[in-house]
């Protein structure tokens, strides 16, 4: 690389170039076209996700109430409930870990260490698969266990103070009082949703209302779209790992650039998760 630069400088010695003008036949961004393309693809993909998340924001703000995330996401495998946000924190750790192993794979690639690349890519794939497994479990719990679908959202929040007139056999007992903003889950029994009756402070008897439909649909849609990115990332990682094993990239002699490119993609998936995690689980 260095000798190349010296040569181009010498070559241009005779011509009258304006100061600072680029002298061609080199890469002004010091990056190959493939890497640049990956960056710009990720930029445009970021705008797709931004479109989704901004739509999420608009729909959420257009609703009088929105489900409380640490109430909705509070189950763990093994029948543990009331463990708010623990499972998703584990999922996030898995994704961060797989990002870290990916960085290691890229670093080994820069050193030209074939076995190192393969090893760390393998760990990355495992991380991706665990994340996908976690997501599958989370979806199953929401759909099967709590009966949330893209059409119906049983997670609501009270918009007034009141007292329950009946219990649901889970957490709510008849006579229990609640305040504005208290979250609730409408349980699904024997083919129908059991909306509990309550009396508000004005003395009117009402039923628990369903939460905003958009919550379920947006959750499944946006995490699904992210999950699809993780899945395709795993597929690409697998292909590239196999190629690396055959020594294909070693022979190309470009410091495992393909690994670097898929690395960018993988970190991007992690990056998107930062924001999905923020808007769905934290805010």
């Amino acid at each position: 690389m260095i000798t190349e630069h010296v040569m181009t400088d010498e070559h241009n010695h005779g011509t009258h170039d304006t100061p600072g003008s680029w002298n061609g036949a080199a890469e002004p961004f010091k990056a190959s076209y493939g890497k640049l393309m990956m960056w710009y693809f990720l930029l445009s993909d970021a705008f797709t996700f931004a479109g989704f998340l901004i739509s999420y924001g608009a729909l959420r703000l257009s609703m009088p109430s929105w489900p409380l995330p640490d109430f909705v996401f509070s189950t763990l495998p093994g029948g543990i409930t009331h463990a708010p946000l623990i499972f998703v924190t584990i999922m996030t750790f898995v994704l961060i870990l797989s990002s870290v192993t990916m960085v290691r794979a890229v670093q080994e690639g820069h050193r030209g260490n074939q076995s190192g690349v393969v090893k760390w890519m393998f760990f990355t794939i495992v991380g991706g698969l665990i994340f996908l497994g976690c997501q599958a479990w989370e979806w199953t719990t929401l759909i099967k266990g709590e009966s949330m679908t893209v059409w119906t959202n049983p997670f609501g929040r009270h918009i007034e103070d009141g007292v329950y007139l009946e219990g649901d056999g889970h957490d709510i007992k008849a006579g229990q009082a609640f305040t504005v903003g208290a979250p609730y889950l409408i349980h699904y029994h024997d083919g129908h949703y059991n909306q509990l009756k309550y009396k508000n402070s004005a003395g009117e008897v009402k039923e628990q209302a369903f939460g905003p439909k958009a919550f379920g649909a947006l959750f499944f849609f946006i995490t699904g779209f992210h999950g699809f990115h993780v899945f395709s990332g795993v597929v690409f990682l697998l292909i590239i790992m196999l190629n690396a094993m055959t020594g294909l990239y070693q022979n190309r002699g470009n410091h495992y650039e393909m690994v670097e490119k898929i690395g960018l993609y993988w970190h991007f998936v992690d990056l998107v998760w930062v924001f999905v995690f923020l808007v769905f689980y934290l805010l």
Binding site: S44, F47, T48, F49, G51, S55, V150, A214, A217
Partner: peptide, 25 residues
Amino acid sequence: GLLSFPVLVAGFLLLMFDRGMGTSF
């Protein structure tokens, strides 16, 4: 084009779900 078309895709995908899945975006 690189920055604006993806947002259209986002809109289209939500529209496809409204059409095919019965969601209410």
